[in-house]
C-alpha cells in the first residue's frame, strides 16, 4: 500500500471500488443472463457473446416455463408458500419481539441479560440439529409438509434475530418523550402505545425486513420438513426439472431465481441505510 490516503478522500478509493462492484454484480448479471437464454444458447457457446456470458438472442421461454409452462405447477405454489410462511413467521416474530425488546430496553426487571444471551445463543444454533427431531415428530403429529409445520421452526430463526435487533434499536429511542407522556398522566401502557410505537416504527419495520430476508433464505427446514405441498421457493429450486427429462433445468431455475431476487433487491435499494443500521446495531458494542 504505497498510496498515501488523503483525509478528504481521493479518487483512489473510487478506483478500488470498481473491482468490488464488478465482483458483486457479475453473479447477479450472470443469473439474469442465464434466465434469458433459450435452449440453444444454453447448450451452445457460439450462440452467446462475451465468452458464453450473455445470449445473442434474448429468449423469454424460461419465464414462460415457470409461469405458464411445465414448471408452473412447481414454482407458483412454492412462491405462494414462501410468501405465506415467511410473512407469517416475520409478523409473529416482530410482534412478539416488539413487546419483548420494549421491556428489555425500557423496563427494569431481572432476567433481561438472560433473554438477550438466550436469543444470541439460539441464533447460533445449527439448524440441521433441529431438523432431525422435528422430521420424526412432525410426521407423527401431522405437521409434516404443512404451512404451520414450517412457520413454527422458522420462529427459531426469526425470533432471536428480531429480539436482538429490536432491543438495540429501542435503546436508541429518546425515552424522555415517554416520561413526558407519563408526567402528563399517561400510564406505562398508554405511553408505550401512543408515544413509543410511532417512535419505534422505523426500527420495527427494518427488523421486519431483515427477519423476512432470513426466513426467505431458509433452505434446510424447507427441504427437510416438506414433501411437495408446503415446499418453498429455495427448496423447489433444488427439485426443478427440465421440460423433458433430457433437458437441463438451468434456464427455469435461473428465471425463478430472478423472480424471487427482484423483490429483495428492491427492498435493499430502498432501505439500504436502515438495513445496514439494523444488521450492525446488535453486533457492535461501544
Amino acid at each position: 500500500m504505497a498510496t498515501r490516503d488523503d483525509a478528504k478522500g481521493t479518487g483512489v478509493y473510487s478506483i478500488i471500488a470498481i473491482p468490488i462492484i464488478i465482483w458483486t454484480l457479475i453473479p447477479l448479471l450472470w443469473t439474469l443472463a442465464l434466465s434469458l437464454k433459450g435452449k440453444d444458447a444454453l447448450a451452445n457457446a457460439d450462440a452467446n457473446i462475451l465468452g458464453n456470458f450473455w445470449p445473442k438472442q434474448v429468449s423469454w421461454e424460461n419465464y414462460q416455463l415457470i409461469f405458464t409452462g411445465g414448471a408452473s405447477d412447481l414454482f407458483l405454489p412454492a412462491l405462494r408458500n414462501s410468501v405465506i410462511v415467511c410473512l407469517s413467521a416475520t409478523v409473529i416474530s416482530v410482534v412478539l419481539a416488539t413487546f419483548c425488546a420494549y421491556a428489555i430496553a425500557r423496563l427494569d426487571f431481572p432476567g433481561k441479560r438472560m433473554i438477550l444471551t438466550t436469543a444470541l445463543g439460539v441464533s447460533f444454533f445449527p439448524v440441521i440439529a433441529m431438523v432431525t427431531p422435528l422430521f420424526d415428530v412432525w410426521r407423527n403429529i401431522g405437521l409434516f409438509d404443512t404451512i404451520p409445520g414450517l412457520i413454527i421452526p422458522y420462529l427459531s430463526l426469526t425470533l432471536p434475530l428480531s429480539i436482538w435487533i429490536l432491543a438495540a434499536f429501542f435503546q436508541q429511542i429518546p425515552w424522555e418523550m415517554e416520561q413526558a407522556a407519563q408526567v402528563d398522566g399517561a400510564t406505562t401502557w398508554q405511553a408505550f402505545r401512543k408515544v413509543i410505537v410511532p417512535l419505534a416504527a422505523p426500527g420495527v419495520f427494518t427488523t421486519a425486513i431483515i427477519t423476512f430476508f432470513t426466513a426467505w433464505n431458509d433452505f434446510v427446514f424447507a427441504i427437510s420438513l416438506t414433501a411437495d405441498k408446503a415446499r418453498t421457493v429455495p427448496a423447489a429450486l433444488a427439485f426443478f426439472t427440465g421440460a423433458s427429462q433430457f433437458e437441463q433445468p438451468t434456464g427455469g431455475i435461473m428465471a425463478a431465481a430472478v423472480v424471487v431476487t427482484i423483490p429483495v433487491v428492491i427492498l435493499v435499494l430502498l432501505f439500504q441505510r436502515r438495513i445496514v443500521a439494523g444488521l450492525t446495531s446488535g453486533a457492535v458494542k461501544g
Binding site: T261, V264, Q272
Partner: peptide, 15 residues
C-alpha cells in the same frame, strides 16, 4: 457502493 455491497446479503443462498 454501500447499496451494491449489501445486495448479496439479501440473495437466497440457494440462488
Amino acid at each position: 457502493l454501500r447499496t451494491i455491497v449489501l445486495i448479496p446479503y439479501s440473495i437466497i443462498t440457494v440462488v
